[in-house]
Design a protein around this nucleic acid. Sequence first.
DNA 1: TTTAGCACTCTCTCCGTGAGAGTGCTAACC
DNA 2: GGTTAGCACTCTCACGGAGAGAGTGCTAAA
Lengths: 340, 340
Amino acid sequence: MTLDDRKARVLRAVVEEYIETGLPVGSRVIAKRYRLGVSPATIRNEMADLEDTGYLDKPHTSSGRVPSDRGYRFYVDELMPKKKLTAGESRAIEALFRTKMRDVVSFLREAVRLVSETSNYLGFVLGPDCESVTFRSIHLLPASSDKALLVLITDIGFVETCLIEMSEVSNEELRAISETLSRNLTGVTMDRIADKAYSLLKEETSRYAMIVEQVVEFLKSVTLSDSERLYVGSPVNLLNLPEFRDVERLKGVISAIETNGMIQTLLSKSDDETNPTIRIGAENESESIKDISMVYGTFSAGRTEGKIGILGPKRMDYSKAVAIVSMFEDKLTGYFSKGR
Amino acid sequence: MTLDDRKARVLRAVVEEYIETGLPVGSRVIAKRYRLGVSPATIRNEMADLEDTGYLDKPHTSSGRVPSDRGYRFYVDELMPKKKLTAGESRAIEALFRTKMRDVVSFLREAVRLVSETSNYLGFVLGPDCESVTFRSIHLLPASSDKALLVLITDIGFVETCLIEMSEVSNEELRAISETLSRNLTGVTMDRIADKAYSLLKEETSRYAMIVEQVVEFLKSVTLSDSERLYVGSPVNLLNLPEFRDVERLKGVISAIETNGMIQTLLSKSDDETNPTIRIGAENESESIKDISMVYGTFSAGRTEGKIGILGPKRMDYSKAVAIVSMFEDKLTGYFSKGR
DNA sequence: TTTAGCACTCTCTCCGTGAGAGTGCTAACC
DNA sequence: GGTTAGCACTCTCACGGAGAGAGTGCTAAA
């Protein structure tokens, strides 16, 4: 399924022209702007062939060509140049990873914002899942006369806190409970921690039972549900794109994204591809986003991993998107391994 | 500047009809649907008067009337009925305040989501500012061999955490430092805490200086900047409104909202009005949102306060918006006072 | 194999027209 | 005097046809 050299060059020209302008591209423009050394008529023949073999589409009989999903696919697999980020863009990203962030969640939020900003599309992050995360320590701190703060530090640096209610308990007692919990639960993976804590609770017959019960409750809930792990940027950038002038389509996409589990499902499918992964249009196998593309990659955080990616129109600047995602993959992996 | 009874009834009818349909309203509809006991011709005369006095506008010479800012203002001040939330809506809000939230930030985020959902407009919350907040305790917990977790609990239940780096320090030493910090800093308001900690640092000549320095660094940054305190909901709801079919306008509004300081500035102006405050169109004094309205209120959190509100089209359902905001004001105030 | 030429197709924009909605005014009515 | 019916007038919006423009496919020549 390969193309002879000139066809490939024509396809590349069409894709790049279309990515730039968003308008169906005609033979004349290609001949003029992309010095292929042949006349528009020849280009027309090549384009007709490319259309027959499914790499190009025509919106209607007598207008320029538009890349098909297959055309984009061939482009990103075979023709696309490797783009580098500009010095300014790299600097902005470096800067994010140098600033000391308050916590992992706001850090990821900030990352999403930056991905959206540099790509001019819609960035998203699916945070590391917590199932195989273990934790480092657990603490109960006095917060008020009838409340204590439960602090949980995981091995990848996630910090979770939760206020729990209790009847009068001294600071020393709190400390004792903390130590029991830490001793028994450190190193246990998140998906098993609640059970473990439960058996601990059963042994516990003291008057701290109520506290331990709340701790267990919290531990059960702490494995972030998928929807809580997903951070999506602001959709303003999409408004600038001509393909979203139609409000209905935009609405479809946004609500699809906000639908719980939507992106997660997409990301989970067949992940054996190269990194970053590119999903073009209908490859996403979801009706509502069948004419947008995704570029996303995986970063590892301890034993587990998260995803970071970009949602944009099919005619997105794949090359730049790949550069951005790649950079974030590396940086995030570094970020999460550093703390260990 | 009052209106005779019939004019008031006509105005009310026009406003309510327009809020419902979004279409310029004519004399016939008013006469038919709002049984005022007079003919369309009479309504026309009244409407002409209302236009002369500035309560109504006409998009063009021969179309129905549309309320002017002044018309809306009179409506919300004098004519608007008090609406109650439906049982289902109240229940959803109650439920939010019953669930145990992980931390204040995610709680406020969830509140924003719910406000957006029940209003069908765009909800926002401006979190309590931290300047006059004091804190209850400060803790340094061992996180890894070369990191400690700094945990700060404020008197309104905000929990802030931050990882700080350090060379080998034993748990006992950490505890000692925590206690020194707590002893010296508890009760100091946020805006003065960094200074106070600084003087503490100067006295400190031991090898913990590096740690204390980082703590000070963190305390300085912890007073959340305005932009970090602002939580805005998803703009999908706005897409459904006919006034935002024009993508350009929508874009203007969204980027205005995302512009740092925008909403804050609006909220800060002259706050002596009744609660909830209603700002209609040009009353917002910002070009970019001069044809949208805000309904917002204040909730108190300890010595300080935050705002919660709704952004919507000028023809928003003010009555319902007021009901929603009022309920959230109460509930949030309760929420933040409970923990004290 | 490539290219020039040309007829053809399809879209998009720009009117002009007609229907529809709603107004303002006038004159009659209670 | 306030209210109403009647009617001419205005403005928008939807529809449709015309013309320009862009681009194609095909044919025939280089």
